[in-house]
Each structure stands twice: as C-alpha cells, then as structure tokens.
C-alpha cells in the first residue's frame, strides 16, 4: 500500500434522489474509499448500485432531483462539497475529468471533434488559440487518431474512434484524476480491448490516477490496483485487487466472483446470484444484500453491518466478519 496522502478521499458520502411518486431513493449511503496518485481503482457492481452516482456526486453533476445529504469529498485535502459552484467549475476537467459511457451521445453532434477538444483548453485559460490547436493535434495523435480528422463531426467517426476522441478530450487540460464510466460498453470486443489498452498506456505515460467504473470483473483484474465492490448504494468490500480476488470476504463479492467465468473451471458451472438488486426507494431494513444472501441470519435482516477493517487496506461490511473478529 502506498503511504502517500490520498489524492481523492470519499468520506461517508450519502446521496438521495427524490422520485416522481414522492418517495426518496437512497442512492448512496456512507460511501468511503481513497484514490492515491497514479493508482487505478475499479468500481464494480450490478447496474443501479450507485457507481455512476458516485462519480457524478464527486464532480457535482447530479440532476436537480438529487441531494448530497452528508459526507466529504476531499481532493488533495480540500472538500469539494464545500466549494461554491463557481469554484467547483475550475476543478472540473482541469483537475478531474471524465469519460462517459457511449461516446455517441456524449459528443455534441453539431460541433467538430477538434472544436470540442479545444473548447475545454480555451475555457480553462490554459493557452492561446494557436497553441491550443497544436495541443489538439498532439492529443489526437496520442490516442491514435490522425490529426487531419480533427475537423470532422462525431457521426463521421466509428464507435471506437469516438471513444478515443472522448479520451483525448478528457486529457485536454492535463487532469491528475480521470473517471472512466463504463468506457467500453456498446463497443465490440476487439475495440474494447484496444480502448482498455489505450487507457492503460495513457495512465502509465501521464501518471494519472484513474477510477474505472465497470461491471466486468475481468477488466478490473487486468488493469486495476484496488477494487471497490458496491451493492445497493453501499460499499460491500474494498481492497487490493489480488487480495479481494483471492480471498473475497463479503458474501456478495464471493458470489460475484463465482459468477465470473474462470478458465480453470468448466463452462456451465457459472453461478448466478438469485434475486434482483434492491429498489433504492424500497430498501430492506438491515443489510441491503440480506434478501439475496445465502449466509444471512436474523441479525442481517434488522441491523446494517459496519465496515470491518481486515488490515492492509482491505475492508468489508458483513456481520459474519464482525463475529469472526469478536471470536479472536
């Protein structure tokens, strides 16, 4: 584990959404994890578990129906949640930028790619137009797009190229932290691999810290240093990838990894987790995973488990672990 100060530190972050039928969806509850400089963190979980909401909460880009109810987002020790909107705008893209999923819709259809990249550089007053233009060419070159294609529109690019352009755009202001929200969904397998490779290359080249949101455990094993497993808006387990993959402590992680195809096991033994993820506006009392957990007992259904520190930066939230700790 690195001993440096974390670049980004989420402390007990909770976010709610008010829904149209008047109920409140507790989309994030008590989410805490750290991202150290130069580290790649994988954020995994089923869809609707709060991965994207976590990113949007950090960047403060949630819709008006959302409310951050408590917690801190410390970036280099400064709480982003305490900033004014104007001050927050200076952090966006310059310090933390983001690659959204499905770059077709994330790029403006009536602006050229070059213009969309240059816009960010000019906006943050980094350089004049001539230099910015040169920088756009450099960026496109870095992600493997011929700079001659800068004056084309998004619909003239293939899906993979759009995602490359999106990555070039995200790097425009030399941020120290990059969020990638399912950057490879909706791309075909070959292109997926290329995009991941590109992300890894850039991460090493620029020494970026990356938070990669995905539901693909294979991707996490391949590119991440640590992994944060989320379930129903809470962190289930968090730790170094090797440790979590080799000795998962939370029953949800265990099930998830069993469901993950392993080359050493015959196909067909793929486990499926029974049941569906909880609806965030009708959460079960107690542990959110209890209704689907094969190891659940009475306490799980009434009391939410606290995070247990398992040492070496490995934590998990499960009553079974508390018991084990008490026995020792």
């Amino acid at each position: 584990m690195t001993s440096t100060e974390p670049l980004l530190s989420l402390r007990h972050l909770s976010t709610e959404f008010s829904t149209t039928d008047g109920t409140v969806a507790r989309a994030l509850e008590d989410v805490s994890f750290d991202v150290h400089p130069g580290q790649t963190v994988g954020l995994v979980g089923e869809s609707g578990c709060g991965k994207t909401t976590t990113l949007l909460s950090i960047m403060r880009l949630l819709p008006v129906t959302a409310r951050i109810t408590s917690g801190q987002v410390l970036f280099n020790g400064k709480d982003l949640l305490a900033l004014s909107e104007t001050d927050m705008r200076r952090y966006r893209w310059k310090e933390l930028s983001i690659v959204f999923q499905g770059a077709m819709n994330a790029l403006n259809p009536v602006m050229t790619i070059g213009e969309q990249i240059r816009e960010a550089i000019i906006l943050h007053d980094l350089m004049d137009k001539t230099h910015a233009n040169r920088r756009v060419n450099e960026l496109l070159d870095m992600v493997g797009i011929a700079p001659s294609r800068r004056d084309q529109y998004p619909h003239e690019y293939s899906g993979g190229m759009r995602q490359r352009a999106m990555i070039a755009m995200a790097l425009a202001c030399q941020p120290c932290l990059l969020f990638a929200d399912e950057p490879t969904t909706a791309l075909d397998v070959m292109v997926q691999a290329q995009i991941l490779e590109l992300l890894q290359k850039i991460q090493r080249l620029l020494g970026l810290a990356v938070v990669l949101v995905t539901h693909d455990l294979g991707v996490v094993a391949e590119v991440c240093d640590t992994v944060v497993v989320m379930y129903g808006g809470k962190v289930a387990e968090n730790g170094p990838v090797d440790e979590v993959y080799n000795a998962p402590q939370h029953p949800y992680t265990q099930r998830l990894l069993e469901a993950f195809p392993d080359l050493n096991r015959p196909a067909g033994s793929l486990a499926v987790i029974p049941g569906t993820p909880p609806r965030l506006n009708a959460l079960p009392p107690g542990c959110r995973f209890a209704p689907r957990c094969h190891k659940a007992f009475e306490r799980c259904r009434v009391e939410a488990p606290a995070e247990t520190d398992l040492g070496g930066g490995h934590t998990a939230a499960c009553h079974l672990l508390e018991k084990a700790e008490a026995h020792q």
Binding site: N108, V110, L123
Partner: peptide
C-alpha cells in the same frame, strides 16, 4: 436532457456557456 450537455457541464462550463455553445444550435 442529452448526454453531451452533461459533458459540457463536466468540462467546467457555466450554464449560460453550455446553453449558448452546445444547446442553442441543436
């Protein structure tokens, strides 16, 4: 409601800038 508006906001643009540069023409 489109994604590219969220991208523009993530770039650090103010509401007015997003409206003028990205929303109006579309």
């Amino acid at each position: 409601g489109e994604d590219y508006i969220l991208t523009a906001k993530a770039k650090g643009m103010s509401h007015w800038q997003v409206l003028r540069k990205h929303a109006l023409k579309n």
